[in-house]
Amino acid sequence: MNIEITDVTRRFGRTKAVAGVSMEAGSGVFGLLGPNGAGKTSLLRMMATVIPPTSGTLRLLGRDPGGYGPRKEIRRRLGYLPQNLGYYPGFTVVEFVEYFALLKEMPAARVPAAVAAAVERVGLGSKAKAKLRTLSGGMLRRAGIAQAIVNEPELLLLDEPTAGLDPEQRVTFRELMRDFGQRSTVIVSTHLVEDVGAACSQVALMDQGKIVFYGTPDELTARGEGTSAAGDAPLERGYSAVLAAARSVTAARA
């Protein structure tokens, strides 16, 4: 298993962003769904070793990220696209991707070829030498994806990766996710239910810091059948039905 999470919590002051999450994931594309403030980004940041959990245990790629050596090893094999990706406006696309390839400690001799492959893979070949400040939002997002995949990560964490991408680019990106999912663990946090339905083999739905559903997209769809849950597509209705059920349980307990 590339990800083993046991009863993990994360607090920010008084706010409990993640409230006892347990999950395991091997190879494949995993969707992380949920409303705003559900705890998806916090969970992803813990998996990216950006923040430590407040309590619980986390093992990534068979290692404990709490130790300096194992954490460094995890980070070498990790690809991460944050929700709010900052850019160096004066860098070109290639310089940006190359910079992070070097910070991931890729062997320097391998970096130029890996950067070229990543830039081509996200369709930014024609903009390779363009400064980041001249690119559109969708292109910047693709530059962010390129830095995430440049080291052929074993664990790829993507927070809202399709935000700003046009429909054609989203289709291409789903293919890329499926391709990576054949040999790596890909975790995608998204609001877009159709991305999950098209690309993910497993899906976890989070609400109020907890995972309230874990299964396949088909199983999530089945939860919405025969209900009056809101949604235009079957998967959306499943999403709404699970959320409504989880919230009614919480309200009853309260």
């Binding site: 950006v50 460094k72 980070r75 990790l78 991460y80 900052g86 992070f100 910070l103 991931k104």
Partner: peptide
Amino acid sequence: IDPAWELSCSMAVSDRMV
């Protein structure tokens, strides 16, 4: 200050070392 600080925090070369 670093616009890509969040990303830097997930890199093998430690952000504090940088």
